[in-house]
Design a protein around this nucleic acid. Structure first.
Length: 311
DNA sequence: AAGCCGACCTGAGGGC
DNA sequence: TGCCCTCAGGTCGGCT
């Protein structure tokens, strides 16, 4: 589900909601999701016998000192130089709320919540809670993930940042590392399709299927073009639109095609600004030609056959 | 080295 | 209603 703008929104929401709070208790019911980076460089999954108690014991008493984002990961900085790195994959998202345990399952509650928030955490899409934190001040943070693809890595800061998942990531598209010369270099060294290049997290980190299609449509570049075949003008347009589309999507608090919700349980507003993704058979918003959908690398790609030429 | 494919999971929506 | 099929915002490991 979430791509850079959605994960950025999650991180900003969490920053307001949990920085300064101390963890009192942890609960989870999908051990495969939990990865513990050990001091000896090895890793335990949450269902490892030693991890079951270790995870909760290690988190208890730690204070949240920061929340940030790297690619599509939310990084929760904890006291003692620990990090929780959460990758929500397709359907994961955080929720501020209140739950009570009933028969080993969390049930939404409403203590101290606004009516709107109490209703939000009861919404179906927010009800797949597999991870919960209780804080000392009585507040709670839930993590809902219908498909259970999400992954939570916990450990010493340098171990987590050095893990294979986080250390192999390319530059942040909105950071100063990705300037025009850097993008030109990435383009010229990529022989594959531009759509695949945009999705390759080791080349640029954070772009996913929706925003790749939006960026290519806005730049008038066909998704099947070879990355190294773009003209100077096309590279410039691509550069500007990577920044423009992602920045605007962050401003609108992301896109909610289906599962994505912010920490208050609300949908993102960028849906209204989507130009091609999911619009197969509908008219192009520039030229009225019907939008096509093809499959590239087992992912759908949407484009306008008139505005985005292959030749 | 790069590219393709299945695996990981569950839910939603469409066709019949 | 229900069954069966397809599709979904993302990686990841294993195989050519």
């Amino acid at each position: 589900m979430p791509e850079l703008p959605e994960v950025e929104t999650m991180a900003r929401d969490l920053k307001k909601a949990i920085v300064g709070k101390t963890i009192r208790k942890v609960w989870y019911d999908w051990p495969k999701m939990i990865h513990l980076e050990l001091e000896n460089g090895r890793r335990h999954l949450g269902h490892h016998p030693a991890s079951r108690t270790m995870f909760g014991r290690k988190l208890r008493g730690l204070k949240v000192v920061s929340v940030s984002r790297r690619a599509k990961n939310v990084l929760i900085g904890l006291s003692g130089d620990h990090i929780l790195a959460v990758h929500p994959k397709m359907t994961g998202h955080f929720l501020s709320g209140q739950w009570i345990m009933r028969g080993g399952k969390p049930l939404p509650a409403s203590y101290g919540l606004s009516r709107r928030q109490a209703e939000a955490i009861r919404e179906k899409v927010n009800s797949y809670i597999h991870f919960l934190l209780w804080f000392k001040d009585g507040s709670m943070l839930g993590y809902s993930d219908a498909r259970k693809f999400g992954r939570i890595i916990f450990g010493a800061k340098e171990k987590v940042l050095g893990s294979k998942e986080l250390s192999s990531l390319g530059p942040e598209p909105l950071g100063s590392d990705l300037d025009l010369p850097a993008l030109r270099k990435i383009l010229s060294s990529s022989r594959g399709r531009i759509k695949q290049m945009l999705l390759d997290q080791t080349k640029i980190a954070g772009i996913g299927n929706i925003y790749a299609d939006e960026i290519l449509w806005t730049s008038k570049v066909h998704p099947l073009r070879r990355a190294n075949s773009l003209s100077d003008g096309e590279a410039k347009a691509l550069f500007n639109n990577i920044k423009k589309v992602l920045t605007s999507a962050i401003k609108m608090r992301g896109t909610s095609m289906s599962d994505y919700r912010d920490a208050s349980g609300e949908s993102g507003g960028y849906m209204r600004l989507i130009k091609v993704y999911g619009r197969e058979g509908e008219p192009c918003l520039r030229c009225r030609m019907l939008i096509k959908r093809i499959v590239i690398a087992a992912r759908s790609a949407h484009f306008c056959p008139r505005c985005q030429r292959l030749a």
